[in-house]
Amino acid sequence: MKGKFISVAVAAIFCVALVGSVAAEEINAYMGTSPDNNAKIVQFIKAKTGITVNQSFQSFGEIEARVKAEAPNFNADMIIGCGSSTGFMAKKNGWAVPYVSPAWNGVPDVFLDPQGNWYNIGNFSFVLVSNKDRLARAGLTMPKSWKDLLDPKWKGEIVMPSPLSSGTANMMRFSFLALYGDAEGWKFLEALDKNIHHYTRSGNAPTDLVGRGEFILGITSDENVKKRVDDGYPLVWSIPIEGTGYDGTFVLILKGTKKLETCKKIIDLLGTPEFSAVMAEIGYMTPRPAENKLYGKTLPKYIKLDLDKAADDKPKNNDIWKAKLRSTFE
């Protein structure tokens, strides 16, 4: 009797384990936009094509690490949302399946690879956010220039993401290095470090920490700012006079996928004006013209960037970052 109970239990468990892998059209994807936005994209794909996208939330930096570690046996069929550095790396190493999608005809070159190794579904930037209430209580005003952040009055009141885990932070770093030049840029980052309370894991985390009033200022990804303001956080945001940087949100098919046709359908869908409208609604600068809900009609001022160089410099800059900014802690 007792032994039977065990065997029945074990058998039942295996049955449970086996069910649930029912075949429908579905793919696994690494998706690096915020959990909310990932869900929006997944819902859009499901509604338009019926394809189920299984995804796990990771930051851009984590997706790049994951892809590097897994190559060439990837555990996902696609990446929907990674940084340009990951896209370039995948193209260089042959990790992407090239597919020239007819649905992307007429999109400017900066949004796609001519060989079809990657597509860019929207550029995002970083902005300065502040907590209205805390700002007023402290009797301070929103900084006008990035250099204003170096003022000692902000000491311990600024948060920004860590470039070791966040692609957004990597974008901030290469943008500041491009703005000020390498030598001056590192000096700026080191001086800024004195005022930074700590570096967060995700590029969007400062938006929430500042929104909750834990800190007065945050340098953060712009992708979530509009939603958080709508949610009711007392947030104000701005782009200092020097401008901001940008990075793409790249999409690519990973080599070894057994669902190439499904992946192609998704790429096609992402090239439509309808999808651009979804992304612009969130606040992205999209491949197809659409009204941007965060910036409106006036485009932000951009720092001049070389994304290829930024991708190449990333490992080197990580080492410098660790050497310069980690040794200084208390």
Partner: peptide, 10 residues
């Protein structure tokens, strides 16, 4: 955790 998931420095 950061070393593995962020930098993939195994």
């Amino acid at each position: 955790y950061t070393m593995i998931t962020g930098e993939s420095d195994f």
